[in-house]
Every structure is written in structure tokens, then in C-alpha cells.
Nucleic acid binder design. Sequence first.
DNA 1: ACATTATGCAACCTTTTAGTTGCATGTTAA
DNA 2: TTAACATGCAACTAAAAGGTTGCATAATGT
Lengths: 107, 107
Amino acid sequence: MTIDATFRALADVSRRQLLDNLFARNGQTLGELCEGIDMTRQAVTKHLAILEEANLIATVWRGREKLHYLNPVPIHEISTRWIHKYERGPLRTLDELKKTLEEDGHD
Amino acid sequence: MTIDATFRALADVSRRQLLDNLFARNGQTLGELCEGIDMTRQAVTKHLAILEEANLIATVWRGREKLHYLNPVPIHEISTRWIHKYERGPLRTLDELKKTLEEDGHD
DNA sequence: ACATTATGCAACCTTTTAGTTGCATGTTAA
DNA sequence: TTAACATGCAACTAAAAGGTTGCATAATGT
């Protein structure tokens, strides 16, 4: 829900891989998401819970299967509310800063 | 250096605040970055070390002072190499997916 | 009905993380 | 030269994160 939860959820490489996996094929069950992963099902469950908590995925039960759907909205929010600032902000390049610093040192 | 290091560095709210602080005024000393923060200088040092390790900031010594400069490049990399995929990818919206699911359930 | 399948829940362990305190080192100004 | 200042380094602690094992529960297919 918060931007902090999103950042924290994205910090783990296994969770980003799960998202990538869902990106490749959305709506997978827990079992499918566990295939070919070097981790127990329970560990994957925990990662998915963190992703769901951060609203990065939504789940739907179909019988005894739990389907997982990617929700790109929080990623988009990080992009617009946080990253864009640094992309188009008034930051000078490091090279420009070094030059400034050298000039400051001229005394 | 790696995208993983960048994600991990950005996961902590204090570190993002430090980046925001440098964004507002670049080239601050450690002492300046510590002002008005509820944390010891040593804790801030550690956060800055993690940010530097992730190449999100660069530092220059001026006498006994250490100046900190923001480097937006890794943020930009996250944006282009990871986030953009989810923004313009072939993902359907959750609403569309729910509709699909309901149709699948018509048996 | 009953064995199988898909998942959940809980306790536990280990490693990492975020923070602290205490002391050391190098630089500057009087 | 010496006191004050800016920072570094190291040891330690508490809490969080990532993972495991074991057992429970609910749905499915025969």
C-alpha cells in the first residue's frame, strides 16, 4: 500500500523473479510458481504474501488452487512518484560537480 | 553496481531520505546530512556506505570534510531496465483478468 | 469413501540488518 | 602546539528477514 512496502518488497531478488515469472505468464498457481525454484513451497508462500501485502499481486481462489495475478500499479507509482524526480530533476552530472569542486579549491 | 544492490539500497526509508536530502542540496558533508535526523552519526555513515556501494552516491574529501554527491544513474537503470517493462508490457488490468476468470468459471 | 493434491499455519533456526557505544585518527584554527 | 572538529573503525546488541520442517485443512478425482 505504501511506497515503502513496495520498495521493501522489491528489494529481494527472489520476489522480483516471482514478479518476472508472473509477467511472463500471469495467473499462475502457487504450485506452478514453485516449479524450478530452489526453495521450499513455504518460502515461496512467504514471498508471495509479502508481494500481496505490498499490493504487487492479487490472488483469486479457484477451487483448491490459488491463482496469482500481477498488479503493476505500485511499480508505476514508484516510477512516477519517486524515480521520475531523479531522472528529470535539476541534478548536475558528477563530472560537472567535479569541475565545480576543482574551481572551489582554487585558493 | 548491480541492479540488486540498487534495489536493496533503496529498500530502506532512511536511505531514501538521505538521497532526497542530497537531491534538495547536493554535495553535503556527513555532518550536514546528520542534522535533524534521529540517528547517530555512525548509523548515517553506514547508510551512506551502502548508498556508495550501490553507486548511488559518490564522495569527495575536502580537507577533513567528506562531501556527498548524488548519482542518479543507477536509479535511471532501474527505471529503464526493470520498471519500464511493467509499465508498457502486455499486462492486462486486474479488472480484465477478473472478467476472464469469471468466463473460465462458466462450466 | 478415500487417497491425492493444493495450500495454510506455526514453531523454529540462522543470517542479515539497523542501530548503538567507545575509542582512534587526521585536519583545522587559535 | 594544542584544543576542537569531522570523520573512521570495531565490537556489540536487538530485531527483522529468509528459510526450514512438521502437521493441518480443504478440494478433487476415482
